[in-house]
């Protein structure tokens, strides 16, 4: 266990998680297939993936950091920079756009006082554009963590934000 603690110096993964990943990596012929699983576990614990997270993933899987970084930077749902506690992915694809997605995006920006790519000062919200979330039937839609919200009216935005604020302070 001592050795495992050493490779995760800033505690990005729970001890059991780390041990499980290492065990699983040993069983696989191509451990790199676990890249996303490890990155997502780190992101779940830490909110985003710092450089140490990329390096830790590389160590666990026995690959180079660049090989992890190639995957980490390809997917926009893996955050390589610090984001708010609630990253809000707003769909900008065709169905959402034709059902008022643009107006919805404006409403989010107005309510939170930030533009896309920014985080609110209290560190709670980050606004991110996203290509299709796969829920065209619920357009216009947003995704926060793994949860989808939609169809959203402009009035729903205030309520959603307030609910998340309450959740954060609880």
């Amino acid at each position: 266990m001592a050795q495992e603690e050493k490779i995760d110096q800033i505690g990005l993964l729970e001890e059991e998680e780390l041990a499980a990943f290492i065990d699983h990596a040993c069983e696989l012929e191509h451990p790199r297939e676990m890249v996303i699983d490890v990155l997502r576990a780190i992101q779940k614990n830490h909110g985003w993936v710092p450089d140490e997270g990329v390096e830790l993933t590389a160590t666990i899987l026995g690959i180079t950091p660049i090989e992890v970084e190639e995957v980490a930077t390809f997917y926009d749902k893996i955050f390589r920079r610090q984001v708010g506690r609630f990253p809000i992915h707003i769909c900008d694809s065709i169905c959402c756009w034709s059902n008022g997605g643009e107006e919805l995006a404006e409403q989010f920006q107005k309510t939170l006082g930030i533009t896309f790519g920014e985080t609110t000062k209290d560190g709670l919200f980050t606004l991110l554009p996203s290509c299709c979330l796969g829920v065209c039937g619920q357009a216009p839609a947003v995704m926060i963590h793994q949860k989808l919200y939609g169809p959203l009216q402009l009035d729903d935005v205030d309520e959603l934000i307030n609910r998340l604020r309450r959740e954060a302070s609880a």
Binding site: T64, I66, E69, E70, T73, F74, D76
Partner: peptide
């Protein structure tokens, strides 16, 4: 080489 790659999308 193992220290060069392609990142982003």
């Amino acid at each position: 080489g193992s220290d060069f790659g392609v990142m982003g999308s």
